[in-house]
């Protein structure tokens, strides 16, 4: 090993060599007959570099965009939300009072019930409980056909 190689090696360990210098160093070490520790070191690195993974990867190529999945998903979401809303609507509309007169009376009774409850708590409880019957009476007494 000549002094030039030694100098390069020293530089190499200090990590100051350029890629060109490293290539030169490798060449020089390769020509040296006796297997020095340094030569083995570079050979080992070379071997590692040439290692190929046993698992092969395939490039997926152009990514396939499943546009129909997007549409299907949005349809499903739309359908779910739609049926949910419709069901809500349906479940209430079934009991919706359409006669303004009845509606007003029901509302009055309901508000009175709430109102007296808020006001006095139990003092008016008997009165309130009688109010419970009221809506039913109103509905059954007055034109039944108009309600639903």
């Amino acid at each position: 090993m000549d002094s030039r190689t030694k100098l390069l090696l020293e530089k190499y360990w200090r990590a100051e060599t350029s890629t060109a210098e490293e290539r030169l160093l490798k060449e020089q070490l390769g020509t040296v007959q006796e297997a020095s520790a340094e030569a083995n070191y570079f050979k080992a690195i070379d071997r590692r570099k040439q290692q190929v993974s046993e698992i092969s990867f395939q490039h997926p190529g152009k990514r396939i965009y499943y546009w129909y999945v997007t549409i299907a998903a949005s349809l499903v979401i739309g359908l779910l939300v739609g049926t949910g809303l419709w069901q809500r609507q349906q479940s209430s509309s079934e009991y919706t009072v359409h006669d303004p007169e009845i509606a007003l009376e029901l509302t009055r009774n309901a508000l009175l019930m709430v109102s007296s409850g808020l006001n006095e708590g139990k003092d008016l409880s008997a009165y309130q409980l009688n109010q419970i019957n009221k809506p039913k009476e109103i509905i059954t007494n007055k034109s039944n056909s108009n309600i639903y």
Binding site: T96, V97, A103, L106, T107
Partner: peptide, 13 residues
């Protein structure tokens, strides 16, 4: 007894 009064009805009141 189930009763529902709609917002339309309230606007009539």
């Amino acid at each position: 007894t189930k009763v529902s009064v709609s917002s339309k009805m309230f606007s009539m009141f």
